[in-house]
Design a protein around this nucleic acid. Sequence first.
DNA 1: CGGCACGTTGAAGGGCTTCAAGCTCTGTGG
DNA 2: CCACAGAGCTTGAAGCCCTTCAACGTGCCG
Lengths: 241, 241
Amino acid sequence: MPIKQDEVLLAGTRDALKRTEIFAGLPPSVLDRLADAARLHSAQHGDLLFRQGEEAHTFYVLVSGRLRLVQHTADGKDVTMANFVPGDLIGLVVALNHEPYPGSAEVLEDAEVLALPGDLMWQLMNENAQLSVRVLRMVAARLYEAHNRIRELSAERVQQRIARSLLRLAAKVGVKGEGDTIRLDLRLSRQDLAQLNGTTLETVSRTLTAWEREGIIEAGREHIVILRPHQLVVIAEDLPH
Amino acid sequence: MPIKQDEVLLAGTRDALKRTEIFAGLPPSVLDRLADAARLHSAQHGDLLFRQGEEAHTFYVLVSGRLRLVQHTADGKDVTMANFVPGDLIGLVVALNHEPYPGSAEVLEDAEVLALPGDLMWQLMNENAQLSVRVLRMVAARLYEAHNRIRELSAERVQQRIARSLLRLAAKVGVKGEGDTIRLDLRLSRQDLAQLNGTTLETVSRTLTAWEREGIIEAGREHIVILRPHQLVVIAEDLPH
DNA sequence: CGGCACGTTGAAGGGCTTCAAGCTCTGTGG
DNA sequence: CCACAGAGCTTGAAGCCCTTCAACGTGCCG
């Protein structure tokens, strides 16, 4: 739902951009052009920012909340390609080229996003090499993550992969509790974990139940606390004992 | 093995750069600086351009031949992350940041490569936004491929994945023969196909044997001809009949 | 408080891995 | 030139990991 722009909001928009790592420290003129074009939207659990296959003209900066990028397969399965946290850019590269979005962007936790036109970004990147290089860095980091997942999906067992995704989520959205415990600060169903790891919700359920019995985690409805992170590392790395 | 630079070779180097899509049409001054710094190497089947974990200062432009990027897992398995054909850039992003190579670059077919310093490229990219944007496009294309593979590894059966990688290789290095037949123009063992698809060489062998019986392919030692490409598509897409 | 999404658990079975043995090419050195 | 070593490949057998189907809890929210 678009919100009417006024001067207060415009200032807020510029602030939000400045706080975004990829835009931090850019010349004020560049920030102004971005802020003028930006539109702030808010969205809630289950909403889609865009749908797989739609032609992209707009990309998004996540200001608050949680998003994920999901690809739908021909036979109806969903595969989660990435989880996003505030500061992340979503759908940038396809918006530059007006390509179809490669997946749907789904809101996990009530979110605020800035919508920005791909054409403007394209222009700014061609004028400002520093900006291009930063975007390159971001995309390269995602390629790196994607390669890691390919390696894991190719060579590891389901258990190891689930352990890894819990650890990765802990690094991204973990909140420390008593002792070594880490609470994952997002709604996360068995189905979500299955889509992240190329498995089924039943297998995830059995795995989490087993870990809960061993005191490694505490698994509630759409909510997980890691009690013994080190033990998860042992499982993820397939270490002895 | 480095080859002594002389004027003839330098001209050849500049030509090779110009023929590389990512450098084509850049200002001559930029091309000159790249050509001056480039060193031509040749390497043969089994050689490694670099090894996983080494700190990267150099990236490579593949001039002729075939390469692949392989990641080694902790427990000794190898996973092929990408196959490269002439014109591709290898190890660029890590060379820009002096990070460790994320995998080893292995020569599949006798190859010539240009070695270029990451620092120079970094400099040129910061001066020339057009160059940055092109590199971004290349990395984005690889991210797109990686996401496709993640989706396939997550949701598809081994048969489908093998069919897909044969079709992908056909698109990259396929040579048309009689009728619809396509010969894959690279050395490709059962083990190679297994590493591309997260499976074992035995499963690949059984699958190819079955397809050969059905007349879909002709499978020789490190050498495959696709006889009925459409039938492979049917398998890859899991279509009826 | 009823509906529905989320979650658990069991049972059956299949796809794929693993281990093992032996075959078939290819290149190489005696 | 041929034997032989080794890499590539095939095939069989056993079985496990995981999926699939099914039925039934459980907790949340309107």
